[in-house]
Design a protein around this nucleic acid. Sequence first.
DNA 1: GCCGGGCCATAGGAAAAGGCTATAGCAAAA
DNA 2: TTTTGCTATAGCCTTTTCCTATGGCCCGGC
Lengths: 313, 313
Amino acid sequence: MARRTSGITLQQIQYFIEVAEEGSITAAADMLFVAQPTMSAAMKDLESKLGRSLLLRSARGVTLTTDGAEFLGYARQVIEQVALLEQRYLGRPPSRRLLGVSTQHYSFAVDAFVEMVKGTEAAEYEFSLRETRTWDIIEDVRTLRSELGLLYRNDFNRNVIDKLLRDSGLTFHPLFLAEPHIFISRKNPLASRDRATLADLADLPRLTFDQGTNNSFYFAEEILSTLSSKREIRVSDRATIFNLMIGLNGYTISTGLISDDLDPEIVAVPLDVDEHIEIGWIGHSTIPLTEQAQRYLAEVRTVVAGFGVPLLG
Amino acid sequence: MARRTSGITLQQIQYFIEVAEEGSITAAADMLFVAQPTMSAAMKDLESKLGRSLLLRSARGVTLTTDGAEFLGYARQVIEQVALLEQRYLGRPPSRRLLGVSTQHYSFAVDAFVEMVKGTEAAEYEFSLRETRTWDIIEDVRTLRSELGLLYRNDFNRNVIDKLLRDSGLTFHPLFLAEPHIFISRKNPLASRDRATLADLADLPRLTFDQGTNNSFYFAEEILSTLSSKREIRVSDRATIFNLMIGLNGYTISTGLISDDLDPEIVAVPLDVDEHIEIGWIGHSTIPLTEQAQRYLAEVRTVVAGFGVPLLG
DNA sequence: GCCGGGCCATAGGAAAAGGCTATAGCAAAA
DNA sequence: TTTTGCTATAGCCTTTTCCTATGGCCCGGC
């Protein structure tokens, strides 16, 4: 029988550590609730598999050989990793987490989330919705903190985002194309205009979402992030950005998708630029979506379709 | 039956990794030379032990669940540690290494080593003698590269050395007390003196053993390392230090133990200071010495007794 | 100097785990 | 619809693992 595995078992390693720490086969056997001959045999088997003597037997117990002391180090490393695994998976019940979503600051993502939760039958559940920085979205999905992420991609950040996703084993799935709009206060003179141009914005404070230490242009949530602006304000909260639109007469560039129940003081005006915003979701390439995630994406499509935006895919 | 161990086996973890990488139970079974139902059962058992579903079965193979993808990370960590252990212990024959010794630069340590090897019956053997820095001696013994180390301790470095040894699980065993001597060229005017004083040395180059990056006074091989000297030369080799005694008329402070077959141009002269040099060996507290190590220490005691130095312990 | 207790090793049998073959069930591709 | 290529189940056998009982050895106490 051709075996690839070494034949050393976790149990033997655990037994050995206990024996080494107790300095006694009998004591270790007692500690681990096995018979002494079992422990004795396990040690013998381990030594024979390694082809080395690990223990010096005497009438007062056992002591480590040089090889044994060295092996103990490696053994502890292995068990440490196993302990990590076990404390993560054993003992605690399977998580009730049905879905985690990380997203850029889009109100449609929230609206869809609300609908998805409303449609959930389960008596007990655990959902999470994290509106956060672009880099953290990718990180959340990569580490499975979230099952999917929502972000935009365009010609400018495409290469950077795609490489990052590829290296993380993630895939971008386009959802829809949005036309760039500016979000401004209803009181702003531009609010009554059909369209706005970049020139119109020159003297207004530009509001952008803070991207923390990964403050590259490529991670900006807003298109045209490389254009300079005389007044620049970074915030981290969607409510805050609305406050600043009103209080400071600021603007931000986004998808224009704005739901009725949002702050009535905020309006979206199409921006005259030759750019599109491609919104999509990211997830692990090899992991199929759970049903719950599929339901969420369906809600996203429904919500977005309600704005008359052309869906992709 | 109360079991402490989780019941997860290394084999299951290895199997799971293979399944995850192949995306197929059948393929993984083939790769590892087991029957497909065996692999199927192993995965089922693993999932039941973890209380979570790791794989999504379909007619085209399996894909990971979210839990499965996360578990894969932990699983890889465990196997990585096991691989380290196996490549260290499996496949290669038990070492023929009978004894490794790390020591400060003492000719008596070499003399005893020679005698010990001469007295060895084995047709094949592997010995090592490393004359090295103080810090490396402790490190060698701690990591079991050497079974024992030889170094000196006195009132000055005692606290530092003892703490370092304690933290490493090592114990210092005194061997003997030596009187400080200076080693100088036979041509040096001091060579004919009965005793020398520190004042006599003021204008001579002081030769000390280089301690590398751990260049603390506490690790110096020579006593009185805190006294300043106008000319200071650090070397790493015992032959070199002798060359410099002759060529540069330098001196170093050591035990005075100097064997006949050493360079006849070097002489030792007692130094008038109120200090002693306590030489001892260090080893792991919990690991008993091998016979070979005991033989070496016996030779050390014999060699040293030949100089009329009072033994300790 | 002999006995008792503590320790590790061995023996033999029982239980459990893990392996195999054969086959069923199922879903996608042809 | 049929075929193909998966995974799951059933039944059986082999191997491993664990148990109890016992033996031998060394050390310390009497």
